[in-house]
C-alpha cells in the first residue's frame, strides 16, 4: 500500500513538472482573467470612482459589499477569540473562590 502511494506521488510530481512549463508568464496580458474584466477596470476606474489608485477603486467601490462582510468577519473573529481566551473554564488554574469571571477587565 505504501509503495503504491509512493509510486502515485512520483507520477503526479513528474506530470506536474512536465506541465508547469506550459503555464503562462506571471502578469501576461493574454490569460483569461486579464482579458475579461481587468481592461474595463483600468479604463474606467479613474472617472467612475474618483480615486487615482485602481486597487482602492476595485476593493472599496466596485466590490464594497464584499469588503463590508470581510470587515465584519474580522470583527467577529476578534470578539470570539477574546471570549475564548477570557472564559474561565478553558485550561485555567482553578480560580480563587468567590470571584466571578468577568468578560474583559
Amino acid at each position: 500500500m505504501r509503495g503504491l502511494v509512493a509510486v502515485l506521488l512520483a507520477i503526479m510530481t513528474g506530470l506536474f513538472c512536465l506541465v508547469i512549463t506550459y503555464l503562462p508568464k506571471i502578469g501576461s496580458a493574454d490569460t483569461a482573467p486579464n482579458q475579461h474584466v481587468t481592461p474595463v477596470y483600468i479604463a474606467r476606474s479613474a472617472e467612475d470612482t474618483g480615486s487615482p489608485n485602481i486597487v482602492t477603486g476595485v476593493i472599496i467601490d466596485y466590490r464594497g459589499f464584499d469588503t463590508m462582510w470581510e470587515t465584519s468577519v474580522m470583527f467577529l473573529a476578534g470578539v470570539t477569540t477574546v471570549l475564548v481566551l477570557t472564559s474561565n473554564t478553558m485550561g485555567r488554574k482553578p480560580e480563587k473562590d468567590g470571584e466571578e469571571g468577568e468578560v474583559i477587565k
Binding site: T71, M74, F75, T81, V82, L85
Partner: peptide, 17 residues
C-alpha cells in the same frame, strides 16, 4: 477603527490571561 480596536482586544485578552 474596527481593525485597531480588534488588535487591542486581542492584546488585552492575551495579557489578561
Amino acid at each position: 477603527i474596527c481593525v485597531m480596536m480588534t488588535i487591542i482586544n486581542l492584546l488585552d485578552a492575551i495579557v489578561k490571561r
